[in-house]
């Protein structure tokens, strides 16, 4: 507990010791390999940040903890998505093709081949405008944002026209998600109605059984209203 076990790292030394003490007849086949390619150094912690020397001497802390990674786009990204929170709800493709996907993009235009138009496009376009056109941040943001709105609108138009054309030449589309959802809801409601009717019927039968025959002829007078309601749940649950 709390101790390091270095047996896995010291296989070579152990193998040699075993052979030298004649507990093993021969060296294992990997003996020379592990000598040629030794295991790497582990458990060493690189110093990530040094404490301040000037000024008031602080007790060094978090010296070995990794540092946060920050990029200039981060602020722009958070600005855009704060202004357009529903952009985060759109489905997004996150699988990289080769790892070099971003190298083929030229943000002189906001639309890139092979990349869907989304908030990231706005951020990159804004970065490009700030860097190459020396736009101030707000102007670059507005420019990129307007281009984004325009292309979103064009996408919508394109989609609508495509649907109209397809319908014109005889395509038909199935039910939409809302219709399917309504159907499922209707079905559940019908099931519930059936179940509720059954429950009511059971309840009525039970009540009829309860009041059908007076147990004692002397007490056959109509029971009090409060008493009957109090007794009802108990008598219903008793036969189960």
């Amino acid at each position: 507990m709390g101790r390091y076990d270095f047996r896995a790292l010291r296989v070579r030394q152990t193998a040699r010791a075993l052979v030298e003490t004649r507990r093993d007849p021969a060296l294992p086949p990997w003996y020379k390999i592990v000598g040629d390619i030794p295991p790497s150094e582990i458990l060493s912690r690189p110093v990530q940040r040094t404490p301040r020397v000037r000024g008031k001497a602080k007790k060094p802390s978090r010296m070995f903890q990794p540092l946060p990674i920050a990029y200039p786009e981060d602020k722009l990204r958070s600005d855009f998505f704060n202004d357009h929170p529903w952009e985060l709800a759109r489905p997004r493709l996150v699988v990289e093709d080769s790892g070099n996907d971003a190298k083929g993009y030229n943000w002189a235009t906001i639309v890139q081949p092979g990349k869907q138009l989304d908030g990231e496009s706005v951020v990159q376009r804004q970065m490009w405008l700030m860097k190459h056109k020396a736009y101030p941040k707000a102007l670059a943001y507005d420019t990129a944002r307007r281009e984004f709105y325009k292309h979103r609108h064009l996408e919508d138009v394109r989609r609508r026209i495509a649907k109209e054309e397809a319908l014109h030449v005889g395509a038909y589309f199935g039910k939409g998600p809302l219709e399917i959802g309504m159907e499922l809801e209707d079905k559940s409601f019908e099931n519930w109605k059936q179940w509720a009717a059954q429950q009511i019927e059971d309840e009525q039968q039970m009540r009829a059984q309860l009041f059908s025959g007076p147990v004692n002829p002397e007490e056959s007078a109509p029971p009090e209203v409060e008493g009957s309601f109090e007794e009802l749940p108990e008598t219903v649950s008793a036969p189960r």
């Binding site: 582990i42 458990l43 060493s44 690189p46 990530q48 070995f64 990794p66 540092l67 946060p68 990674i69």
Partner: peptide, 15 residues
Amino acid sequence: PANARYIYGIRQGTH
């Protein structure tokens, strides 16, 4: 912490 050697940094709460 034994892996500090292999860690490049922290991004959005993950190493």
